[in-house]
Design a protein around this nucleic acid. Sequence first.
DNA 1: AAGTATTTTATAATGATTCTAAAGTACTGT
DNA 2: ACAGTACTTTAGAATCATTATAAAATACTT
Lengths: 138, 138
Amino acid sequence: MSDNTEFVKKLRSVGLRPTKQRLKICKILFDRKNTFHFTISDLQKIIKTKIEEKVSLATIYNTVHSFKKKGYLKEISINSDKSYYDTNITNHHHFLDEETNELLDLDDNDISNLKIKKTIPGKKIKSIEVLVKIANNN
Amino acid sequence: MSDNTEFVKKLRSVGLRPTKQRLKICKILFDRKNTFHFTISDLQKIIKTKIEEKVSLATIYNTVHSFKKKGYLKEISINSDKSYYDTNITNHHHFLDEETNELLDLDDNDISNLKIKKTIPGKKIKSIEVLVKIANNN
DNA sequence: AAGTATTTTATAATGATTCTAAAGTACTGT
DNA sequence: ACAGTACTTTAGAATCATTATAAAATACTT
């Protein structure tokens, strides 16, 4: 450790204080090439194994919520067991493997010209989320 | 009360015993013209007001689960607060009004030729669910 | 009507998430 | 650097939806 400059800036840019805990979580979540899909307990496990000092569960919740509110994370609606989060904050969709419960990103381009033909007077579309459930062939 | 013959048959046809509780819930859920979107607590409130005798919460859960397993109800993934159920068991999608938290059915025809262009080897698509979040214009 | 399998029920248990309020840390102005 | 304030972290309690438990009630079969 530790070149945190990038993450310090990132946090500062949206008015979050760069605390030790937020920086640790930042690194775990954003210091990677690919999209990361996780639940709070996934994150907790990773923290437990990768980090020397502990971060309390309440802080993990707080931090993830802050990141979400500031637009660093997206919450995904899959089921009601627990919340899933995604480091890919662009418009996109998901495969959900029913066998493994794993998520896989699905690009906007992977879906043919999706258009909603119905409109509701006085309402506008905020987002469109496609969830494609998949399972083993056989 | 009470021409339950229809519901008795319905339950019998999938091997569910037509108990008093199941018939009551059947009537509330399926004796209506339009699709019904509800949570367990919605259902509990309706039972509390419409029915003379009480039905225990555990039974409401059990019954809804049985109906779901037998294909009379569909579970909808909206958020992680609680489970939502839908009496419309055909392939269809939803508007979710972010202001009121209300659901609205979206027919397959209301969506232009939705095609998933990506495939995963060894996996097949089980279902495709589109959730369109809407909010007030302004 | 008796015997067995299912169902209902109240209540306890669980698990995810939020709340609380005290202790710790970061920032501001000097 | 220092004091004062505002924000964060923390452990633990509280909450809420859901599931488990096991005894009493009901439905079905013969």
